[in-house]
Design a binder for these strands. Structure first.
Length: 618
DNA sequence: AAATAAGCTG
């Protein structure tokens, strides 16, 4: 399941990236210096005036809005309810909002209830905050109950309240309910949907992969006289980027900028940069980053930088990632736990656990608190380095620190235990996981099947597979790939063949990996004719052979002394630009030494061996 | 005179 991508452009791209970032920070500094032209002075003064208006122009916050600690909020509230006469509803509402802003939703809700109990009049403002709190606590139904009480109290809910409820439904993945509510609003004219209403529904559609319908709604809102804004476009662009449909994302971007004249913001750029990073299209990343830097109104923020850090780390370029962190710090953007999670994960993936651990240990001094994601990376890193005791230690640390291991944590730990052959402990952990209320997903399922197969328990894996039956868990090709590989490695090729046959019966499609595993199994048993047959079936199955297929088949031919076929395959590989992997190469070298291969082949083979293999002695 | 929204973990 691991994919190693090497990208020669990356290093180059990195210098471009950091180059852009550094040049920009240099060009922005002289703005305040004296050797500026008139226009620049104007610009500088504009900059000054905006920074002034940020503080000076804004009205002073009331003490009810200024609360930053929960205790202060409660104390203030207690003091307020003793006062005679009671402070205005506005003051109470401001306090409620301040508490909600601190994300203490249930506290805010408590205060709201107390406030109602002592008879402070409730209006649409306090109602909408209370409803928001319910929604953020995944208790949207309670939000609807409050809505009902609005009607009883003759408080007319406005579009804010409905938007909040709509958002709550989407947060709970209740997309059908959300659509129903949306239609009801329009049909019964409960309120006039505004741009936020539409955007919220668009967000819901995107969340469920309905990008096309989301775009449809974007058109519809325009027709209905509600102009889409940058948020509407960003939501869809972001969703398209996540679904790797980057061309469509750029199409929408162009439409937004050139046809509608809407200015992109940092979120637009960040989404697109994320999409490009995800596809390893580094040159375009630099281009876009440059474009963004050229727009004086926009500068990369913590997310933009974190995405770059993450991209470098995923490519194994941890030093480049650290350079990005240095640049962001220089620019006054403070890295957060997400940024460091990427870096820690990067070191873990490289197996540099000492370094990973030392960054982890330094978090506290930076005022950052590790979260489950942080621990998951370390658990994963230790497992991959076969340091299972350290992994277990980290795993237990999660609960000690008051956090909860999630499905990723359990799956990772399970994988680690299987990997060192501790099937019994894996079983125990699996039970523990279910007792903790964590529902295994398809990934967990794959880890377990794979773990059993690799520990000579194919039978157990197969019976688990049959027990799961026609459930959704078994409708993924990965499951078949694991079992076919497991069965054929145990010499149960007939079982493997049956499974392979079942794939199409189930309406699934074998992928390249499925074919490769099957061909490799057939070769192992010396069934070269069948292997060849399958190889030729690949193209017509819409699944053309890749470099792995050729290597697998080549090894089969070599082991069975089919030298004519070897020659043919080598020529085909040359034509397709595929190269020879390390284990095929060592087989070939043996054959060359034994004099089984024609001298004329040697040159061709030399051409098919990648440089990296030549440099490192086997 | 107070309020709603879209970007990272295996």
């Amino acid at each position: 399941m691991m994919m190693i991508r090497t990208n020669s452009h990356l290093h180059h791209a990195f210098f471009k990236l950091t180059g852009i970032l550094i040049t920009n920070s240099l060009t922005t500094t002289p703005l305040s210096s004296s050797r500026l032209g008139l226009e620049s002075t104007l610009l500088a003064s504009l900059l000054h005036s905006t920074s002034f208006s940020n503080n000076g122009d804004r009205r002073l916050l009331s003490r009810y809005q200024k609360v930053t600690k929960l205790d202060d909020a409660f104390n203030l509230f207690d003091e307020m309810i003793q006062r005679k006469p009671l402070p205005s509803a506005v003051k109470f509402t401001q306090l409620l909002n301040a508490v909600a802003k601190m994300k203490h939703f249930s506290c805010s809700l408590d205060l709201f209830k107390q406030m109602c109990a002592i008879g402070v009049p409730v209006d649409k403002y306090s109602m909408s905050i209370a409803i928001k709190c319910c929604c953020h606590l995944y208790r949207t139904n309670d939000g609807f109950a409050l809505l009902a009480s609005c009607f009883r109290r003759a408080v007319v809910p406005n579009v804010f309240v409905f938007n909040t409820l709509l958002d709550g439904l989407i947060l709970e993945d209740r997309i059908v309910d959300a659509e129903r509510l949306f239609k009801k609003l329009i049909k019964h004219k409960l309120c006039e949907p505004d741009v936020v209403t539409y955007n919220t529904v668009i967000k819901g559609l995107c969340k469920f992969g309905n990008n096309d319908i989301a775009i449809g709604l974007l058109r519809l809102m325009d027709e209905r006289g509600c102009k889409p804004n940058v948020v509407a476009y960003n939501t869809i662009i972001d969703s398209l980027c996540k679904d790797k449909m980057i061309e469509d994302a750029f199409k929408l971007f162009d439409e937004m900028v050139f046809a509608k004249g809407i200015q992109p913001d940092v979120i637009t750029y960040t989404s697109l940069i994320y999409g490009l990073c995800n596809l390893c299209r580094w040159d375009e990343v630099s281009k876009l980053l440059k474009e963004m830097e050229e727009d004086v109104r926009i500068s990369p923020n913590i997310q933009t930088f974190s995405i770059l850090v993450d991209a470098f780390c995923k490519e194994g370029k941890v030093h480049e990632a650290e350079a990005v962190i240095d640049i962001m710090v220089e620019r006054g953007v403070v890295p957060n736990i997400v940024t460091y999670n990427s870096l820690i994960d990067g070191y873990c993936l490289r197996g540099e656990m000492t370094k990973a651990k030392s960054i982890f240990d330094s978090l506290t001094s930076k005022g950052l608190v590790p979260n489950v994601v942080t621990y998951n990376s370390l658990v994963n890193g230790y497992c991959k380095s076969l340091k299972i005791e350290e992994a277990m230690h980290m795993f237990h640390e999660i609960t000690i620190k008051g956090l909860k291991p999630n499905i990723v944590t359990y799956s990772t730990m399970l994988q680690g235990l299987f990997r060192v052959g501790r099937c019994g402990d894996a079983r125990k952990l699996f039970d523990e996981m279910r007792a903790a209320g964590q529902i295994p997903d398809e990934y967990t399922y794959g880890v377990i099947l794979n773990g059993l197969c690799n520990n000579h328990q194919v039978e157990v894996a197969l019976s688990l597979f049959h027990m799961v039956g026609d459930s959704k868990l078994n409708s993924h090709i990965v499951v078949y790939n694991i079992l076919i590989e497991g069965a054929s490695k145990c010499g149960e090729l007939d079982t493997a063949k049956t499974l392979f046959h079942d794939i199409t019966l189930k309406g699934l499609q074998p992928n390249v990996r499925t074919f490769n595993i099957m061909i490799s199994g057939l070769c192992r048993e010396g069934q070269l004719k069948e292997a060849k047959l399958l190889f030729h079936k690949m193209d017509e199955s819409g699944c053309p052979p890749d470099s792995v297929t050729y290597n697998v088949l080549l090894q089969g031919y070599l082991k069975n002394q089919n030298y004519d076929d070897v020659e043919m395959l080598l020529h085909e590989m040359d034509g397709r630009g595929y190269s020879i992997d390390a284990s095929t190469l060592s087989l070939l070298i043996h054959q060359i030494a034994a004099g089984s291969l024609d001298k004329s082949m040697v040159q061709l083979i030399g051409r098919l061996v990648p440089k990296e293999l030549m440099d490192t002695p086997a």
